[in-house]
């Protein structure tokens, strides 16, 4: 097995952190954009760019809601994204000899 077999969408530090953080939530739960940003420590612009890439691959889903004047975006890992992270984790284990 080689590193080329690792999912290139996840095998990037920032996106790995995003996906791993969202995977820590129970299935069906979502996190607000601001809490996710706070937990990962990224600038809003940088986070948006990476989330867009993950969303294009259907790894994450986002939802915008409005409560009066306040708008809120929530982000969740899709079942497809969760499966991709599982596959990525398995591939990493294979590469590192089960360590």
């Amino acid at each position: 097995m080689t590193t080329e077999e690792l999912d290139p969408l996840i095998h990037v530090p920032t996106r790995l952190k995003i996906v791993a953080t969202l995977a820590a939530l129970p299935e069906g739960d979502a996190l607000t954009f601001t809490r996710l940003q706070d937990m990962i420590g990224l600038t809003p612009g940088n986070l948006i760019i990476h989330l867009r890439k993950l969303e294009e691959a259907d790894y994450v889903s986002s939802e915008k809601s409005r409560n009066g004047a306040v708008s809120m975006t929530t982000v969740a890992l899709t079942s497809h994204g969760r499966a991709a992270l599982d596959a990525y984790t398995q591939a990493l284990r294979g590469l590192l000899g089960g360590l």
């Binding site: 095998h11 790995l16 952190k17 760019i49 990493l92 590192l96």
Partner: peptide
């Protein structure tokens, strides 16, 4: 922003530790 200088591809050991 997805390339090395902004956290691009990296070593599997680093990836496992980060994960």
């Amino acid at each position: 922003p997805t390339t090395a200088e902004n956290g691009g591809p990296f070593d599997p050991k680093q990836a496992a530790a980060l994960l």
